[in-house]
């Protein structure tokens, strides 16, 4: 096992996870234009749902994954319906929405900790016996390979949804100007509700994949959210491709950054990257 190929692989794996979070986050941001801090906790909801359905209730694993993704989506939809929608109707500022989502994040995270304790848990049944693949002199597990494939599939699916369907057209119209979209007869509140469902479901999926790769804990959402936000901002917030690009850039900078300094600085490196971008290119790589 050589170090550089392994670092490249690790960067791609981390980048895929961040990309999945950033895709959902950007999708929601594009339509609503606020930083939904509760996005990360959807990942924890997805992960814990799979833990509960598959490990505690003993349901079929694939069925449990579907339930987990759906549950994350439903919670996201519910947050929009009962918190963000009333606020948007009142024309509340972005900061109000941001603070409300901070509240939602805190509360949901704590509810998970109450239900499942705050201890670290694994959902994968075959830890240690996973199939390993050698790629370019580095090692990658089966789960990690699945993560990369799923991210690619989701990206393709989301691009198709946004640019080839009527629903996507409506979302892009809302992105450009919500009021005008409303005037031409788009039921914006309904569409935004679906956007929340899809975005949150994607976060749930990311949480499930992380759960299979390493494990789950109630606070996992915050870390993932922050990485997703950083990826979105450096890539170009609200831009689907930008988020993915930013995610991989972040993955590479983080993993190559800890080559020379110790791994505990990972988060600090990520945020330094964010602040450098906020100073020199606040609109990100893709946005002008």
């Amino acid at each position: 096992m050589e170090i550089v190929p392994q670092l490249i692989l690790n960067s791609i794996i981390a980048g895929s996870i961040y990309a999945l979070i950033a895709l959902g986050f950007n999708f929601v941001y594009g339509a609503t234009k606020f930083f939904n801090l509760a996005h990360g906790v959807m990942a924890a909801i997805g992960g814990y749902a799979v833990f509960y359905f598959a490990k505690t209730l003993g349901l079929n694993l694939y069925f449990a994954v579907i339930l987990g993704v759906a549950l994350a989506g439903i919670v996201g939809y519910g947050l929009d319906k009962f918190i963000y929608l009333p606020l948007r109707k009142r024309k509340a500022s972005n900061m109000v929405l941001l603070v409300a989502s901070l509240g939602a994040m805190t509360a949901l995270q704590a509810v998970i900790a109450i239900l499942f304790t705050s201890r670290f848990k694994t959902i994968s049944q075959n830890i240690g016996t996973q199939k390993l693949f050698e790629v370019l002199g580095g090692v990658i597990t089966q789960t990690q390979l699945i993560i990369i494939l799923v991210t690619a599939l989701i990206l393709a699916g989301l691009v198709f949804l946004l640019y080839k369907t009527l629903f996507g057209k409506a979302v892009r119209a809302i992105s450009d100007d919500e009021e005008v979209a409303q005037i031409v007869g788009i039921n914006t509140n309904k569409i935004i509700g679906y956007v929340f469902f899809i975005g949150s479901a994607l976060a749930g999926l990311a949480g499930i994949l992380v759960g299979f790769d390493t494990g789950i804990e109630p606070t996992m959402g915050l870390g993932l959210l922050l990485k997703g936000v950083i990826a979105s901002v450096i890539g170009g917030v609200g831009n689907i491709y930008g988020g993915v690009l930013g995610a991989f850039l972040l993955g590479f900078v983080e993993n190559f950054g800890i080559w020379k300094i110790s791994g505990e600085w990972k988060d600090a490196i990520a945020f330094t990257l964010l602040i450098v971008f906020l100073i020199f290119r606040p609109r990100g790589i893709m946005n002008k």
């Binding site: 606020f34 936000v229 901002v233 988060d267 600090a268 945020f271 330094t272 906020l278 100073i279």
Partner: peptide, 28 residues
Amino acid sequence: VVLSKFKGDYYAIGTFGFNTIIFAIFLN
């Protein structure tokens, strides 16, 4: 000096960053 360049929700995200960096220093 860095933060005063930002506005609104970007300001908030920037402050997240500094809190995390300083926490990392305490920890590491």
